[in-house]
Amino acid sequence: MTATHRGEGVPDVVVLQMSYQQATVIGTRGQLVARAIVDDGSPVVGVTVEFLREVDFLGPRLISLGSAMTDAYGTARVPIDTDQATVRIRARFTGSDDYLPAEITSDINVPAAPDLGAGAADGKTGSEPSLAVVAAVMPSLLAAIALAIWLFLIGLSATTVLAIRRARPSVPVRKEGRS
């Protein structure tokens, strides 16, 4: 049931609820879920909810984690990194002509991501672009550059020494002043 606006000039009171939803697909990120409802329990559809993280390093601040629009059930979701930590999250709806602003702050316990290997941890699927080509080419490229520098340095030293020897006067100068 969708929230029905009561009438012109009377904005509805919105209640926000918030929770953390563990990822159901292994290796994907968990989500912050906020649900916006009006006082009769019906969902508020099509409004934007912003998610913010409260931090207090160098003074209290809010860091935006992103925003999402509520769906037919009144829920908005944003992904969150799965660091093992308890984080204080604020979900905020800034209000509209039809609805009053609302916000909720809650401590969310985010569990650690399971160690699933590189591919899974990145949350890659078959359709996503792969860095396999870069991974295959990069070491060879770096090795070639390193080898080129070595050859260049050794070559430069050798040619310099040879050129110095070649540019000696026919009568070695060092003998001239020998006592």
Binding site: L153, T160, V161, A163, I164, R165, R168, P169, P172, V173
Partner: peptide, 21 residues
């Protein structure tokens, strides 16, 4: 010393190599 006698050519060669390095 690699037979260094300080000729202009030797200086030029050494200077160039040192600059590159």
């Amino acid at each position: 010393s690699f037979g260094w006698s300080g000729t202009p050519r030797q200086r030029q060669v050494l200077e160039r190599a040192l600059t590159i390095v």
